[in-house]
Design a protein around this nucleic acid. Structure first.
Lengths: 239, 239
DNA sequence: CGATCCAATTTCCTATAGGATCACTCGCGA
DNA sequence: TCGCGAGTGATCCTATAGGAAATTGGATCG
C-alpha cells in the first residue's frame, strides 16, 4: 500500500468480466439487434475465448433483462419493448427518481456544485444537438453524448440518495431506458423541455423548500414519460 | 389448466437451474452462514455435478446480492447486514410496496378474495406462533410458515400492481428481507401488530377511498421498520 | 521470539472433448 | 400439391484436464 495505487482500488478481473463488458457494450450500442440469437460458442470464437466465461457473462446479463434464455435452446437479445412495457418502465423510474430526490434533500454545497456542473454539460450537449437537428442532420455521436450527459445528471442525485438498493435498481433500469431511447425518436422540443426541467430541479435543490426537489423531479420524469409515450404511440400507429 | 400442468407451463430446466435453486434454498434457510466461503469445486462435488453449472448458478446469485465474488479468490455468502444497510433496505421496501399498493388500487372482487384468503392464512399462522411463544418455545417450523404467509400476503398486492419491473425489484429485495429476518429477533407484539396492520390494509382495499390502500401500506411498512430497527439496535448494543 | 521466505496444497480459471437436443432440409407418399 | 418423417448440421449442455494464482504451513534468519 506504500505505492501510488489506491488502497482497495485495483480490482482484478477475470475473462468473464471482459466478456460481460464487451457484450453489454454491443447490446447498448445497438450492434446487437433486439431478438437476435446469441450463440455461445459463436461468441466464444469471435472473442477468442472459451465458452465457459461467455456462459457466465450471459447468465449475468440474463438477470438484467437484456438477454433472455430458454433452456436447451440458447440465449437471445431481449425483444424490443412494447408500448405497455414502456409505460411500466416509466412508472418504475418515476418511483425511483422521485424517492432518490427526496432522500438526497437537503443538498450540501458539494452536491450543488456537482449538480450544476452536470447541468451545464447536459445543456451544452443539448444545444449542440439542437443546432444539428435544426440544420437537418441527426448525428449519432451527438445523440450518444447527450444521453450520457443526461444519465450523469440523474446519477448525481441517485448517488446522493445514500441508498445502495435504489442505486442498484436504477442501474438495472438504466439499461432498459437506454434500449428504449434507441427505438423512440425525439425532437428539438424534447431537448429544450429537458433542459428547462433540469434547471428547475437544480433550483429546487438550491432552495430551502424541502419538498421542492421531489416535486421538480416528478414533473420532469412525468414530462419525459408523456413525450416519450406520445412519440412511441405515433411510431406504432404509423409503422 | 384442468390438470396440474399449466398450458404453457412445463418449462424445461438445465442442471444450472437445479443448482441455483438448491443454493438459494441453502442460503435462505441459513444452512450456509453469512460470510461462509463457497468453493466451486467443493459444491460441485457435493451436488455431484461439474463445476460449470455451479459457476453459472453462482453468477446468477451474485446479481441478487446473496453472494459476493472476488476475481481469482472465489465466492462467499454475503456478510450479515449492518444496521445502516437495514435502514436502506426498509426505505427501498417502503417505496416499492407503497407504489405497488397505489397501482393495485382499485381492487376488483377477485383480488379482494385472494387478499382475504392470504390474510386469513397469515392470521392463523400468527396465532399459532403466538401460542407457541407464550408457552415459551420458539419453533422454527412455525416461524418459517408465518413468514411465508406474510410474503404471500404482500405478493397478492405486488402481483396486482401490473408492473413487471416493480415485481422483479421486490423479488430481489425479498431475499434480503428474508436474510434480515433470520438475524433480527421478534416477539409476540410484532406478530399482533402485523396482523392488525394487515387487517387495515384489507379494509382499505375494500373501501372506496382511492388513497386508503397506499396510506395503510405505508403505515404497515413503517411499523415493521420501526419494530425491526428497534430490535436490531438492541441486539447490536447487547452483543 | 517474531518476521520473512519458501514450498506444497488447494482452488480458481480457462480450454477442450463428447453426448444430447434442436432446427432445418430433403425425400417419400397420399 | 401438401403433409410427414428421417437425416444432417449446428448448438447447447456437461464433464474432464491442465495451467495459474492464492492460501497455508513450516523452516530459517534477524
Amino acid at each position: 500500500m506504500a505505492d501510488g495505487r489506491a488502497a482497495e482500488g485495483i480490482r482484478r478481473r477475470g475473462l468473464r468480466d471482459d466478456v460481460h463488458e464487451r457484450l453489454l457494450q454491443l447490446l447498448l450500442s445497438g450492434d446487437i439487434v433486439p431478438g437476435e440469437r446469441l450463440a455461445i460458442d459463436t461468441i466464444a470464437r469471435q472473442l477468442a475465448v472459451s465458452p465457459t466465461p461467455v456462459r457466465e457473462a450471459l447468465a449475468l446479463l440474463e438477470r438484467t433483462g437484456l438477454v433472455t434464455r430458454e433452456a436447451l435452446k440458447g440465449y437471445r437479445a431481449a425483444p424490443p419493448l412494447g408500448v405497455e412495457q414502456l409505460a411500466e418502465l416509466f412508472e418504475a423510474r418515476l418511483m425511483l427518481e422521485v424517492t432518490a430526490a427526496r432522500l438526497a434533500t437537503p443538498a450540501d454545497d458539494d452536491m450543488l456544485r456537482r449538480l450544476r456542473a452536470a447541468e451545464d454539460a447536459h445543456t451544452a450537449a443539448g444545444e449542440r444537438i439542437i443546432t444539428a437537428l435544426s440544420a437537418g442532420d441527426r448525428d449519432l455521436a451527438l445523440t450518444t453524448d447527450y444521453f450520457a450527459k443526461d444519465v450523469a445528471f440523474h446519477r448525481v442525485i441517485l448517488d446522493r440518495s445514500g441508498n445502495r438498493y435504489i442505486e442498484e435498481m436504477s442501474d438495472t433500469l438504466a439499461a432498459q431506458i437506454h434500449r428504449m431511447r434507441q427505438m423512440v425518436p425525439y425532437g428539438v422540443t424534447d431537448v429544450r423541455d429537458a433542459i428547462a426541467e433540469h434547471e428547475v430541479i437544480v433550483a429546487a435543490f438550491a432552495s430551502a423548500d424541502p419538498d421542492a426537489p421531489e416535486r421538480a423531479m416528478r414533473a420532469h420524469i412525468e414530462g419525459v414519460r408523456a413525450r416519450s409515450l406520445k412519440h412511441a404511440r405515433e411510431l406504432a400507429a404509423r409503422g
